[in-house]
Amino acid sequence: SQQPRIFRPNDIYLGNVISFNGNDFQIIEMDNMSLDFCEHFPDEFPMMDTFKIIGDMMHQIVDRRLDIRPHFRRADTKRRRWLDQAVFVSTLDGLALTADLNDQEVLTLMRRFKDADSYYYEEMCDLVSHVYAKNSSMGTPSTKSRKFTIIDSSLEAFKQNARVRTIQWRRTFRKDPQTHDGFVTLAILEKLFKKHGLQLADAVVDEIRRTYEVDP
């Protein structure tokens, strides 16, 4: 800007040019600690706010009636449920979902779904679905997330309830040391749902067993 002013927290983002005493500098890299810090204060750093970015992206996805999961799965030729960085980014680009994002927002997205050098695209698709469900259930108390008191007696109601919960189930299960490579015992699964506020009715447990049981 023409008039010098005091720096604001949200001046600091990837790609921005900031000027010190008339010398322009472009931010081309940020260290992990700075990023961690910013991500903890999403209100002050909207470009580091995964929910805001996913929310904007979700509107685009919904407007275009896009089902992004199959696109990522096609790119995941080894069926690992994650992609390396290059393929993850090129798939996002291919869907034209990064066009409206700046470098910082793309980096935020990537960091959110990165674990070691793997990018867990399924968890990104989950988050889009969660945000959509949460948005569409706003103002309708019957589908709002509930506390322990009401137990869903049908699998369908249970799944809808699980979907609007803020907890990311797939990520939680994947990271739990009691699960193995996408598999978990029904008892542990029940325990994990309960730990995060979802008590399963016997009928639901039964239906989960019937639908999702695999040979050990």
């Binding site: 679905s129 979907r163 996408g182 598999f183 978990v184 015992t185 999702y212 695999v214 050990p216």
Partner: peptide, 18 residues
């Protein structure tokens, strides 16, 4: 004990219904 594929369950939780 009963073993569950949690990815398939999560696929059904996080559907694309728009």
């Amino acid at each position: 004990s009963v073993v569950i594929n949690f990815n398939t369950l999560c696929d059904d939780i996080y559907i694309c219904d728009w």
